[in-house]
Design a protein around this nucleic acid. Sequence first.
DNA 1: CCGAATCCTTAACGATACTG
DNA 2: CAGTATCGTTAAGGATTCGG
Lengths: 132, 132
Amino acid sequence: MANVEPDEAAVCTAMGDILNRIGDKWSVMVVGRLKGGTMRFSELRRAIDGVSQRMLTLTLRNLERDGLVTRTVYAEIPPRVEYTLTEMGCTLTGPIGALWDWAAEHQDQVAQARAVYDRAQAGAEEPERRRA
Amino acid sequence: MANVEPDEAAVCTAMGDILNRIGDKWSVMVVGRLKGGTMRFSELRRAIDGVSQRMLTLTLRNLERDGLVTRTVYAEIPPRVEYTLTEMGCTLTGPIGALWDWAAEHQDQVAQARAVYDRAQAGAEEPERRRA
DNA sequence: CCGAATCCTTAACGATACTG
DNA sequence: CAGTATCGTTAAGGATTCGG
């Protein structure tokens, strides 16, 4: 151990883990919103659009478990629960932002590539039309 | 239209698309390997470890459809098929690299956070042990 | 060698209803 | 308001088999 390289295989596994968190449909949205500061549950729910209560809860639990957000419960009536990015969570906004920018910058190109590909496939699957 | 901001909602949708591609367990590995240059199907299969033939095929098809890799078939016996990153595919390696580095840098911290969280949960679920 | 097709098992996810 | 529990649907992924 104590090698200079932090072990390729281990990083691969970790990468898979991270991507499972990042890739799970809602985590990025949550982190994106929380980037602006503390928010409470129902705020997030309204802000994100399309997320079910269940999935928001699960997403937040996972992020909390990974040490990316902190969850603060206030013993009030009605209850209030606030979520904030941890320091580590903040460091994730960098890489996520890079991905976000890439998406914004290339979405048209991707859409166009898909259209071309799909048209080619449609054409290839109906060779009977070759002389219609 | 023609707003200065490229439409928040559209970018959100695009982001979801991108993440579905990036997040799907194998795409990142493939792009990571292809970063080093052209590779053929069986090379990728061996290099990636754990990927089934089916999933590698599907992953490559999706990447090709999105215009991120090119697929070149050589009419030989036995057949040979090579995959290369497109120019757009290369631009993705930047953001992906950032994520990769983050994972490498924070994997220990995440693992530790998980251990702490899980231990706390285990303790909270067995209050009967409070006086054993 | 590359990949399409089939089958099967497991999750992810959403909708709903209920609790403190 | 925030969260848990349950149920049903869908889709992802793996193993296997066949074909060019």
